[in-house]
């Protein structure tokens, strides 16, 4: 069986590498090459595709906003979710079960279903076309998963730690801040990365709530649609996609072992 599984694992991995390589290679071809010879190497690499994608998609407008959103929503979610998950996981009180379920319910809410009510609310607050408004939406929609994830994390910590801290005369806030939270570092990091991946590519809420401001995924979406209607210049399109995806891949590669560690710690004891 192991003889069977090895090739399966390797072919899965190689295929995934192939997908990424294909994406990168296609971004260096001419469009006719992409279409007529999708599996060949580019005759001469068309680096100009990148310049063209960068200027015609105007990614520059969106990069800073996307960075602010990703960092802001990552931190904001953790600031809100970690304390909540802590009391839900570690405290014995009547409502902790129902409240945990209440948060998990949010995982099942489809984004299009709540878009219009949120729009009306943001409009009342003057938060349409504002990064702050979008940030609140990102944080709130991240919360169910974050609480779900961190609750598992906190409950995996041995309870002797808290008892020992209490015996040393450490107050509950201090115990949380100085002992429990640092122990979840790998989980917080994993959560942050997972959220960054999600928010970096988010288009639906951004499209709905931003009007003049842009994010990088919005410029990409716009660029893709424009490309498809007026001259399907696939090579340039691939270059644009690479511009958005490659930072993400690099972030992942840089963090991957810590990410995986964190995920595992979060999902299991």
């Amino acid at each position: 069986m192991r003889l069977l599984a090895m090739p399966l694992a390797w072919s899965l991995a190689l295929f995934d590498l192939f997908v990424v390589a294909w994406m990168a290679l296609s971004s260096l071809k001419t469009t006719r090459e992409v279409v007529q010879d999708p599996w060949g190497l580019p005759a001469s690499p068309q680096w100009s595709n990148y310049g063209e994608a960068w200027t015609s998609a105007a990614f520059g407008d969106g990069v800073l906003n996307s960075l602010l959103l990703v960092v802001g929503s990552g931190l904001g979610t953790i600031v809100l979710a970690a304390p909540a998950a802590y009391v839900l996981a570690r405290f014995r009180w009547r409502l902790s079960g129902p409240v945990t379920i209440f948060f998990a319910l949010g995982l099942g809410i489809p984004a299009p279903a709540i878009m219009i009510p949120i729009y009306l609310g943001l409009d009342r607050l003057g938060l349409i076309d504002s990064l702050g408004g979008l940030l609140i939406v990102y944080i709130a929609t991240n919360l169910p998963f974050a609480v779900f994830f961190l609750t598992a994390f906190f409950s995996s910590l041995p309870r002797e730690l808290e008892e020992a801290a209490a015996l040393d005369g450490s107050g509950p806030y201090r115990t949380y801040w100085r002992i429990m939270l640092p122990l979840t570092r790998s989980g917080l990091l994993a959560l942050f990365i997972l959220q960054a991946i999600g928010d970096w590519g988010e288009t639906f809420f951004a499209l709905s709530f931003l009007q003049e401001k842009k994010t990088i995924s919005l410029t990409l979406l716009n660029f893709i649609q424009t490309m498809q209607y007026t001259g399907a210049r696939w090579s340039v399109l691939f270059a644009g996609i690479c511009i958005v995806v490659i930072p993400l891949l690099l972030l992942y590669l840089w963090m991957s072992s810590r990410l995986i560690e964190g995920i595992a710690a979060g999902y299991g004891k």
Binding site: L88, A140, T141
Partner: peptide
């Protein structure tokens, strides 16, 4: 006494942005 301040901010944001619209 910690439960309130730790839980409520998250609960509030979540309820206002996701539950009320739902």
């Amino acid at each position: 006494r910690m439960i309130g301040p730790f839980l409520l901010p998250a609960l509030l944001v979540y309820a206002l942005v996701m539950i009320v619209p739902s």
